[in-house]
Computed example of a mutant assay.
Amino acid sequence: MKLIVGSKNPTKVNAVQDIFIDNEIIGIDVPSNVSSQPFSDEETMQGAINRAKLCTEVEKNSFGIGLEGGVMYVGDKLFLCNWGALVTPTGSTFIASGARVLLPKELEIPLKQGIELGAIMDEYANKIDVSIKEGAIGVFTNNLLSRKDMFAQVVTLLKGQYEYWNKK
Rank of each mutant, 00 (worst) to 15 (best):
N142V: 05
K133S: 15
I115Q: 12
D76M: 07
S92Y: 13
S92P: 05
I21A: 05
T156E: 09
G64C: 07
K53E: 13
D76K: 09
R51F: 01
T44N: 12
G47T: 06
P89Y: 14
K60A: 09
D76R: 10
L145D: 00
S146T: 00
F151I: 12
R100A: 09
L158G: 03
S7M: 08
Q17W: 06
T56W: 07
A96N: 13
D29N: 10
V58Y: 09
T156I: 13
V58S: 12
L103D: 04
S7L: 11
I4V: 10
K167M: 11
V139W: 00
F39P: 03
K133E: 02
G91F: 15
V130K: 01
E134D: 07
Q161S: 13
K168R: 08
T88D: 13
E68I: 09
M150F: 02
R147Y: 00
A136E: 04
D122S: 06
E57F: 02
T156H: 07
T93G: 06
G47V: 04
L145C: 00
N82I: 12
N14H: 02
E42Q: 12
Q46E: 10
I25T: 12
N14Q: 02
A136M: 04
G84H: 14
N33I: 02
S146E: 00
T93Y: 13
K53N: 12
K159V: 01
K112C: 03
V5C: 08
A152W: 00
L117C: 10
R147F: 01
K133M: 10
E134Q: 08
C81P: 10
V87P: 06
L158I: 11
G75F: 05
G64Y: 03
I132K: 11
I115F: 09
M45K: 14
I120R: 12
V130W: 01
I19P: 00
A125M: 04
S36Q: 14
V30E: 03
S131I: 05
L103Y: 11
V16C: 05
Q37M: 14
A119D: 15
Y124P: 00
G69W: 06
N82S: 15
P104C: 03
G84P: 13
V13L: 05
V71K: 10
K77E: 13
L103F: 05
S32Y: 08
S131K: 15
S62H: 04
G160M: 03
A152F: 00
E163C: 02
I137M: 07
P110D: 02
M72F: 11
I49T: 03
F63Y: 13
P38R: 07
Y73S: 06
A96T: 04
S62W: 04
C55P: 11
N9S: 09
Q17V: 12
F39V: 12
V87A: 13
D18T: 02
D41K: 07
L78G: 10
E116R: 10
G118E: 11
V87E: 04
V5E: 09
A85H: 10
T88W: 15
N82M: 15
G135P: 02
K105V: 15
N166D: 13
Q17C: 11
